[in-house]
Amino acid sequence: MRRFILIAVPYLWLLALFLVPFLIVLKISLSDIALSIPPYTPQLDLSTGWDGIKSFLSQLDFENFTFLTQDPLYWKAYVSSLQIAAISTVLTLLVGYPIAYGMAQAPDEWRPTLLLLVILPFWTSFLIRVYSWIGILSNEGFLNQFLLWTGIISTPLTILNTNTAVYIGIVYTYLPFMILPIYSALEKMDGSLLEAAEDLGCSRLSAFWLITVPLSKAGIIAGCFLVFIPALGEFVIPSLLGGSDTLMIGKVLWEEFFSNRDWPVASAVAVILLLILVVPIVLFQRNEQKQREMDQ
């Protein structure tokens, strides 16, 4: 009996507040927009019994999804989300790898402090970390002031409200997610392998490419997914740092819901976003699984 309660409580909670809401989204994505409260039709009316369910099912259709494929806005938003997420992931890797490598090479007594320094921003408000870049990137911001002062540029660069600002924002906020898995892979590495390579005549650089990088592959893959997956559905960064022409699917969904009040289309956008996410998520799970098996 106790065991039953132990299982049932979290189970029912998640069923009611995770799975059922998602089924509602799925259902509304198949409905039509209507001028009523709530603003969609058909409504499921259980009081009419089986006939009600049948007529309800017959009114559902894939119209919203067809609409999404016909309107170029949505198509562009999906493509540009994928593009922005992919570019930012590569940039995060390029910035994060040298940091993780430096941490793994650092003396033992520094490591707890270095780790703390990487984790600390993660606990700090996401919103504030994104906000801090507005003052830096704006036309009269610190970056432009600095570059004008050094004489590198003569007119301020427009960075805020462009895709570049979005890349910077994503790299900045998701950097700890990239550093930590790469660091933990590099930390486990057996240093004597590098010694052997150098004894056998490998240069330091080629030893790095032939030994260090392949041995940290699992960390690189994990880090890339941990950045790519949340970046794809990102809302805060494109809406604060991006411009009006920065199309990202999280922002489109938000506007479709709050500004256009088109619930069925917003739901359809959500369903497709999830379908796109399934592939990287499954690949990520596989990578983790493989890693666990290798560790055992």
Binding site: Y11, L14, L15, L17, F18, L19, P21, F22, I24, V25, I28, I229, P230, L232, G233, E234, F235, G250, L253, W254, F257, W263, A266, S267, A270, L273, L274, L277, I281, F284
Partner: peptide
């Protein structure tokens, strides 16, 4: 259901709960 919310985009979680 335990693991899915970890990777679910916040916009979807928010939208579905509101609905």
């Amino acid at each position: 259901m335990i693991y899915a919310p970890l990777v679910m985009p916040e916009v979807i979680t928010g939208l579905s709960l509101l609905l």
